[in-house]
Design a protein around this nucleic acid. Sequence first.
DNA 1: CGTTGGTA
DNA 2: TACCAACGG
Length: 333
Amino acid sequence: MGVALRDIIADYKKPVGFESLAGTAAVDANNALYQFLSIIRQPDGTPLMDQRGRVTSHLSGILFRTATFLTRGIKPVFVFDGKPAALKQGTIDERRKIRSEAAEAWKDALERGDEEAAYKHAQASSRVDAAVIASAKELLHLLGIPVLDAPGEGEAQAAFMAQRGDVRYAVSQDYDTLLFGAPVLVRNLTVSGKRKIRGRLVTVVPERMVLADVLAGLALSREQLIQIGILVGTDFNDGITGIGAKTGLKIVRSGEFALKIREKAPGFDPEPVMDLFLHPQVTTEYALAWKPPDCEGIRKMLCDGYDFSPERVDKALEGFSVKAGQKTLQDWF
DNA sequence: CGTTGGTA
DNA sequence: TACCAACGG
């Protein structure tokens, strides 16, 4: 998933508290939905579902997480993926295969009664499908949170919006967002708090990366950072076997990128991938307007439609509205 | 994921 | 009050 640059950019990740994250944020919606679907599950891997068997994990995640955002002064816009680039087809096919294998492994683990394995495979089988996207958009709309359909990659659009200064930062787990030129990337914003990772309980805190700091620190241009990405592999090209981030950095620094590609991947033209990162398909046609939540509509959708408990929904909505009567709320937005 | 409810 | 397991849908 994404581009494996962690080994060279880990030093530039700075933990940040919610208080310094107040402001507008462009959220990579598909990435956030994937995280909700993957994490909000029962111990045996079963996601939250309504009585009709429709998955609701992402709705729970959106409701509670955006409530937290707004109470902390973070105003999110959710940016959804548009049409995938043709170059992404390989990645898409590969992910589908991994998901379907994981679904099988989940079933097997359940039959053996191995709950831990079941949970792991269930997570890997998570799929952001059309129903998930449609219901997520419907809920966000009712919550008064702006939603935007990117023409291409959501990450690219989020990066573009941050570049233009329309939002303070982009939110995604994927480092690709930096390659797309996001001046500031915030990770762990849609997954934070205490989490079990490899059986251990760890506290996940939001972290900020500043592209200019990464480039200055590594003495690279953005093009060179993309070159490293291309060497290790991105969603749009296979990396070169045996080259990780550190080796990639050495190669690019010594100006041997083109040479290495010719040598190890003779048939491959990196130019379209470079161009995709430098000049992604984006749009300037968006309006960022945060509105008060439609509480009635939300209850209707979540409680009547998806079997949420009215008490829990109302509790969460307190984070959105100040109280009925609400002058403060209007002032806030 | 966030919330709830039991326990020390 | 602080912590943790389990519940939610």
